[in-house]
Design a protein around this nucleic acid. Structure first.
Lengths: 115, 115
DNA sequence: TCCGTATATTCGGATAAGCGGATATATAAA
DNA sequence: TTTATATATCCGCTTATCCGAATATACGGA
């Protein structure tokens, strides 16, 4: 079953600044936990979590629980066109928010040595 | 002055099916008048016109009046990244709506021989 | 000028989206 | 078990978005 993500739905996901920036950060860092995103986005935890849930329910992100933390990454089953769109948008958004990347620092143990 | 179109704003423009399909058609045909779009999209004229106004105000499309008609095209001043995003999304949307292209036939004189 | 066609805009109402404090759940450690 | 931390969800509220009939405007031709 191959993830029915429509172009319009992808756009809706990325049309909100918080979701776009969360996606940007996840794409840039490969994997981030919610507390990292809360810190980087400087938004209430419930807001960040709600947006992440939406991104996951649309198939854009996937979450992996590791102990107390949940690590989000780009859904590896994303269609190629969606990956290219996200890449273009994140590149452009990074130029517009060069400070955003700097604020994302690990608040939880890095996910090393996990099979 | 170089068109301040943010990635999130572009996504918001394309997150609505009507606007996405209108953009798709304009991109595909190069230039279309409102009545062509009304016919192809099978939506009320006021709805189509309202969405076109929004796309134009965001800088995605530009309109050119030719007599009674207004021809819309992709704004030639679009940033390159935006053009690439639109290209990807329209390609994917075309696959999802293969019938849409067929419905767009000229209802007004083709814009030939106009300086 | 008057009429017909094309397009734009206005307007009120319906629906959706976003917010964030409060609360619930999950996990780890004491 | 109790406590602490991380995350998810609930809830009422506010605001934004979309709709389409009605109306206004622009233009060309009679």
């Amino acid at each position: 079953m191959s993830l029915s993500l429509s172009p319009a739905m992808l756009c809706k996901c990325l049309s909100d600044e918080t979701r776009l920036q969360a996606t940007l950060l996840v794409a840039r860092f490969g994997e981030l936990c919610v507390c990292d995103l809360v810190a980087a986005l400087d938004a209430p935890q419930s807001t960040v979590s709600r947006h992440l849930a939406q991104l996951r329910s649309c198939g854009l992100l996937s979450g992996r629980r590791a102990g107390q933390w949940v690590h989000y990454r780009l859904n590896p089953e994303l269609p190629e066109w969606a990956g290219r769109v996200i890449g273009e948008l994140c590149a452009a958004a990074t130029l517009a928010h060069p400070d955003l990347i700097r604020r994302a620092q690990g608040c939880c143990p890095p996910p090393v040595a996990l099979s």
